[in-house]
Computed example of a mutant assay.
Amino acid sequence: MKPYIPLASAVVLSAFSVYSVAEPIKPIPQESGFSGSLVAGLSATSYSSNMISGLGNDISESNIDSLDEGPDSESDVGFAFSGELNYTFAKTRTQLFLGNALEDMVRYDLSFQAGVRQELADQSIVYGAFLFSAIPTEVYADPYQTGTDRDETDRDSSGARIGWQGIMGSGLGVELSHRSVELDDEEAGLDLFNQGLITADQMDDLSREGDHNSLSLTYKVMLDKGQFFVPELNYHDYDLDGEAMAKQQYGTALSYFYNTPKYSVVTRVFYSHFEHDEENPIYGITEEGDSFGGSLVLSYHNIFGWQDFSGIASLAYAESDSDINFYDADVVSGTVGLLYRF
Rank of each mutant, 00 (worst) to 15 (best):
L110A: 08
F112K: 07
Q113G: 07
Q118D: 11
K91P: 08
F132S: 02
D156H: 06
E74C: 14
Q145I: 12
R155Y: 00
W164D: 08
M105A: 15
A134N: 00
S82A: 12
G115H: 00
N63R: 09
Y127T: 09
D154T: 08
T92Y: 11
S157V: 07
R179H: 10
D151G: 13
P71A: 10
Y140S: 13
D104H: 06
Q145D: 11
T92F: 05
S75Q: 11
R117P: 06
G166D: 03
G147H: 13
Y108H: 12
A141S: 15
S82N: 05
I64V: 11
Y140P: 08
P136W: 01
V116D: 12
T153Y: 02
N86M: 02
S111A: 06
L172M: 06
G78M: 01
R93M: 09
F89D: 01
S82T: 10
L96P: 09
I125S: 03
L176R: 09
R93D: 11
T92S: 13
L172R: 05
S66D: 13
I125Q: 01
Q118W: 07
I125R: 00
V116R: 04
G128Y: 08
R107W: 07
F79A: 14
V126I: 15
T92H: 09
G128L: 06
M105K: 08
D109S: 10
E74M: 14
D109R: 04
Y87N: 04
V139C: 13
L120Y: 07
R179G: 10
R117Y: 07
R179L: 05
T94R: 00
F97P: 05
R107V: 08
R161I: 11
V106G: 07
A129F: 04
R155L: 02
F112M: 10
